[in-house]
């Protein structure tokens, strides 16, 4: 290993493989390239990059259409907006074959157990898009029957505002999710690079939550009982994390 490092084949900062050519070292950024000038040789890239490239361009969405957002979801997959351009048109109606859960619509507490079961049945790696304000925050349904944001029962990667959002807004969310997948390091454990495998910025199970700044002031109160008159407030601050 020492001699390889001296030759610059592995660097500590990169943690992955560096492209090599027969003639010597060439600094190459991410991305595949033909190392041989004749075009018949091999190409070299970062292994993480290769895995992520495959993952992000072949997302298999699991549509969970719960209300009107489901109609926009159908339009997005249909020919006019054509999600196939981004490799995510293969919607399957079993969670076992999917890696992208799109929660489209109002999630009620009665449906919450089913939605969480669907999420649990999806194999890793998996991502979640909260489509529309209802699934992002409860939306206009400030009601006892509606989950006030699906991030209270499952981690969310991208939130899409709108009631319902246009299909291009959801396509934008998928592009943002692809950027996010690019930042992941799926082979980190295998290569021993020490970087975290998932890029967990902004997801529900993570450290950062959009509402974290106000969590202490507001969210430790029950949303329907901010002044504590009804005795509904939790003694503990509300946390989205589920142990």
């Amino acid at each position: 290993m020492g001699s390889l490092e001296q030759n610059g084949l592995r660097t500590k900062s990169d943690g992955g493989l560096r492209p090599v050519s027969a003639g010597g070292l060439r600094p190459v950024s991410d991305g595949p390239m033909a190392a041989d000038a004749s075009g018949s040789g091999f190409f070299a890239t970062r292994a993480d990059w290769l895995v992520n490239w495959g993952r992000k361009n072949s997302l298999w969405p699991m549509p969970l259409g719960l209300s009107c957002c489901g109609i926009e979801l159908m339009a997005m997959i249909g020919p006019k907006f054509d999600l196939a351009r981004f490799g995510a048109e293969a919607a399957r109606f079993t969670p076992r074959q999917c890696d992208l859960l799109i929660v489209a619509g109002t999630l009620t507490w009665k449906m919450a157990t089913a939605a969480r079961t669907i999420y649990d049945q999806m194999p890793d790696p998996k991502w979640v898009i909260a489509m529309g304000v209802c699934s992002s925050s409860g939306g206009m349904y400030d009601s006892y029957a509606v989950v006030q944001g699906i991030d209270s029962i499952m981690p969310v990667d991208v939130y899409v505002p709108g009631c319902p959002p246009r299909p291009d807004a959801v396509i934008d969310a998928i592009l943002k999710l692809q950027k996010k997948i690019e930042r992941e390091a799926p082979l980190a454990k295998l290569l021993g690079s020490g970087v975290p495998e998932r890029d967990e910025t902004g997801t529900g199970k993570l450290v950062f939550q959009p509402n974290h700044g106000i969590a202490k002031g507001v969210l430790d109160k029950h949303p329907h009982d901010p002044k504590g008159k009804l005795g509904l407030s939790d003694p503990q601050p509300r946390k989205t994390e589920i142990k």
């Binding site: 507490w109 919450a112 157990t113 006892y144 989950v147 209270s152 029950h222 329907h224 009982d225 009804l230």
Partner: peptide
């Protein structure tokens, strides 16, 4: 203001 049934979900979970 309503009373949320989230307790039932937490129990199930």
């Amino acid at each position: 203001a309503g009373i949320e049934p989230d307790r039932l979900y937490r129990q199930w979970d």
